[in-house]
Simulated assay, not measured.
Amino acid sequence: MVLQRFTPLIICIFLTKCRGHTEFIYTTNNEVKLQCSTNKWQISTESDNKREAICTVECVNGETLKLNNTQNSCINKKSYNVSKNCLLIARSGFFRCVTALDSGFLFPFKPSPNTVTSYIVATANEEMTTKSEERSSVELTEGEDVLLNCSFNLTGKYDNQKFILYWIKTIGKNSSCVYSYDYGLLDGIKYDHHCTVQEELRYRLSNQTEGKNTHNIRISNVTESDAGQYLCALQIQGKWKIIKNITVSDSKTKEDKKHKNSTVSILLYATIPILLVLALAVVGFIWKKTKTSSGSVAIKLQRNQKGKDMEETDDTECSPYAVGTGEEETRRESADIYSVVKQNDLYEHWN
């Protein structure tokens, strides 16, 4: 029973891991370097979801591939001498790093089980709308609703063109499609054609579209998982423009972070004085130890010097070559004279 309950969860986690993630790269650069941990790329340089067969490539000997969007040229290389870590220098388009080749259309936000990473290289075109990108922030309160607004006016050149409007949620390098709107005079209107339905938003997300130029979305009963960066992005003829850039933060997470920072600050303020006192105590101990050692050395040197002087004195008195004092010399001379006198007396007596 327990195994049956957890089997779907295990399969879901496994499939999610296998399907990789999508990176949305909004850039004004002409070329972007993409990394693939395998050796296979699938590409749609026009961002029209049509997979270009000639651009399903395999890297040989770790070479770097470079695409020319104008000529749309890319050689399909097949070789047994293939290598991993394939670099691709590309311009705008959809790019998918895969473990095995897929068929059909290429939707970056609908990865296949063979997908490692999907890339959207969104080359910016500021001329699409009359206003520049707008940035704002929203703070969530769990359990309440949040409304994200996005409206735009197309310039004359793009007013009657087919376009796709996305709401893209990004956390770090991982992007997901929350809402999409396809508009075309011949194809009609399609909702969420480019998105994979997210279970956590299935019953909490509602769009409040008003015509083709206003695309508001409402998220009800918000949770901490709804935090992230939300982009309202417009795509026309393979070019992109971000209309709204909204940072959605969770108030509870913000308060927890603030409380954590305050706790860390308090600990630092309490710890620094203790560390200073300990440092001063160590310095004082070392200084005292050094002073005591210096005094001991000086006393020892004095004792050694005195001992040396005493040894020199003893050596002088005991030496066989010592020089006598004047008094000793006088006594010796007197004794010698006395001996001579005694001898003379004896001499005189016999005579």
Rank of each mutant, 00 (worst) to 15 (best):
E144I: 00
T330D: 15
L154I: 06
V197C: 10
L87S: 14
N39V: 00
T271D: 01
L165D: 05
K131E: 14
V297N: 13
V264R: 05
I274C: 12
Y181Q: 02
L231Y: 14
I13L: 14
A335Q: 14
E312Y: 06
H349R: 14
I120N: 00
E210G: 14
G156Q: 10
T64L: 06
D315I: 09
E199R: 00
N61Q: 03
P108Q: 07
I75Q: 12
N69M: 01
K239N: 11
T56K: 03
L101I: 13
C232L: 02
P8L: 06
C97M: 01
C177R: 01
K162S: 13
N49L: 02
Q35I: 02
K17C: 12
A335T: 14
I266S: 14
N207A: 11
H194T: 00
S206I: 05
V282N: 10
Q4F: 10
K300Y: 14
W41D: 11
G93K: 01
C97F: 06
E126D: 03
C59S: 07
S47M: 01
S83K: 04
L87I: 09
Y158V: 05
G188P: 05
L201M: 06
G295T: 00
E210A: 13
W167R: 03
K289S: 07
T130W: 02
V178I: 09
E23V: 06
A322T: 08
G326W: 03
T123Q: 10
K308C: 09
T129H: 03
V248R: 13
G326F: 03
S334Q: 13
C195P: 00
Q237N: 15
L3H: 15
K260G: 07
I120L: 09
T64M: 12
L280Q: 10
C97L: 02
Q302V: 12
I171M: 13
L280K: 06
S136L: 10
P108E: 05
E52F: 12
I243S: 11
P8I: 04
I242G: 12
E31P: 14
E58S: 03
N69C: 07
E52H: 15
E333D: 14
L234P: 11
C195N: 00
S249R: 08
E199Y: 02
A100P: 12
L301C: 15
K300D: 15
T22M: 03
R331Q: 15
T271I: 01
E348P: 00
I286P: 08
C150L: 01
T129C: 06
E329Y: 04
I43K: 11
E348G: 04
N76K: 03
Q208N: 12
N207R: 02
R5K: 15
M310H: 05
G104D: 01
P8R: 09
R91Q: 03
L185F: 12
S296L: 08
N207V: 01
K77N: 11
H259P: 13
L65H: 11
L231F: 13
N344I: 02
V32M: 04
S73K: 11
K84W: 07
I10C: 12
Q305D: 00
I171T: 07
S206F: 04
K33N: 04
L140V: 02
F94V: 02
L87E: 04
Y80E: 05
Y321M: 10
V283P: 09
L231I: 04
F24V: 03
S176N: 07
D182L: 08
D159W: 02
K258A: 15
F285W: 08
N30V: 01
C18H: 07
H194P: 03
Q4V: 06
S334E: 08
K306W: 11
V282W: 06
F14T: 14
S73V: 04
N149M: 07
K173E: 15
